[in-house]
Design a protein around this nucleic acid. Structure first.
Lengths: 208, 208
DNA sequence: AGCCAAGCGGACGGGGGCGTCCGTTAGCGT
DNA sequence: ACGCTAACGGACGCCCCCGTCCGCTTGGCT
């Protein structure tokens, strides 16, 4: 007797599977290089499929983005997890900052997906919340350890620096990566505890 | 005998002048709040004129942008001039950084106009070059005075910080201004000379 | 008051992106 | 080998933006 689940084909036909893979590859390439506002048609064109096929596999652009950046999201979580697990919280925090900046510098689309509050992007939102929570706790421990300056607001100033990193552009991916790396170096020195710090301008919540 | 220049009407009719003024006001408002990719139609709509009128006064979007931000450009030059004239170069540099960040935070369109290399934007390019040159000399003096960290690259790192400031967004203009102010505070402390600085990652030119 | 050109804006054609429909193709199971 | 249906993609209608043309309005001068 056939069970109910047999009625929905959960396995793709071979051509469908390869099309899907090519679409994702095309999306990753284009989104990485040019950000999220690449036309869906162009993704389809690069993947060698018609627009209808693209829309059949990913009914909304958000779905495509979420799938395309699943790897990057995993890598992002892995970065914060490794930092979180570091016995030296300051060292862990520094490595998180460096790696996240590099990840964002390497992939413009991922930056947009991660930062911009996409409407109805439940997955991305959840991943971001997880990341922010983990890095918040890590930063709190770093502050307790005395290495992080006490007036550094957690997580607001971390988000501030991530936003700042997003503004860094350059004409080639490699020079962008280098600029972002240098910026991360500045940031790390900037947030280090030091006796000579004068008071900073106050922060208001970023949401209002 | 009438002279040749009489043949071109150099004075606008009163309605034309008021339309022109209203167009510029509308453009300033919309560009400030939403950046440069506001449709020309929308500027016309807000100014209460037809699209043809808008295009008659400003045949290209670049012309409109240049006119609309002439004030901001003047203010920008004034800021660097005041900093340049400061007898204490470090103090002058700090005030330039604070003021420029604030100016950019207040006006999203100006940021885009100033940063993005608009094709055929001779005016903006010249203004930017002037600004960069002045602030470069100011920073060099600040470095000689011993207040600016010696490994700070001039003007590359200044531009890096300006780009970073551009990445800072918020849901309201006032919170954006506050965030930018706080960022500028971080930057100033970060570029201060200090015995404890460890080496920074190298910079590659931003152009290649 | 009357003229007339400076000035106006509605409307047009072109281009591009979007999401969907439907006739055709071809993978896969028998 | 054959048929069935999952899967494909060309083509369509919709909307928005762009830049321009042309018949009408109106400010300003005589």
């Amino acid at each position: 007797m056939r069970v109910v689940t047999d009625r929905l084909p959960h396995v793709l036909r071979s051509d469908a599977a390869s099309n899907r893979a090519r679409i994702l590859e095309a999306a990753r390439t284009l989104f990485s290089a040019r950000g999220l506002d690449v036309p869906m048609r162009e993704v389809a064109r690069r993947a060698g499929v018609g627009p209808a096929t693209l829309y059949r596999h990913f009914p909304t652009k958000q779905a495509l983005v979420t799938e395309a950046f699943a790897d990057q999201m995993r890598e992002c979580r892995a970065i914060v997890d490794r930092g979180y697990a570091d016995p030296d919280p300051w060292h862990g925090l520094c490595s998180v900052i460096e790696k996240i900046c590099e990840l964002h510098a390497r992939d413009r689309g991922f930056t947009e997906a991660f930062m911009s509050t996409f409407p109805n992007a439940a997955d991305v939102t959840a991943d971001r919340a997880y990341t922010v929570k983990a890095v918040t706790e890590l930063a709190l421990r770093a502050r307790e350890s005395g290495h992080l300056r006490p007036d550094f607001l957690i997580p607001d100033d971390l988000i501030l620096m991530l936003m700042a990193n997003r503004g860094i552009h350059a004409s080639t991916p490699s020079s962008r990566a280098a600029a972002s790396r240098r910026f991360a170096g500045f940031v790390i020195q900037m947030i280090q505890a030091s006796p000579q710090h004068s008071p900073l301008p106050p922060a208001t919540s970023l949401n209002r």
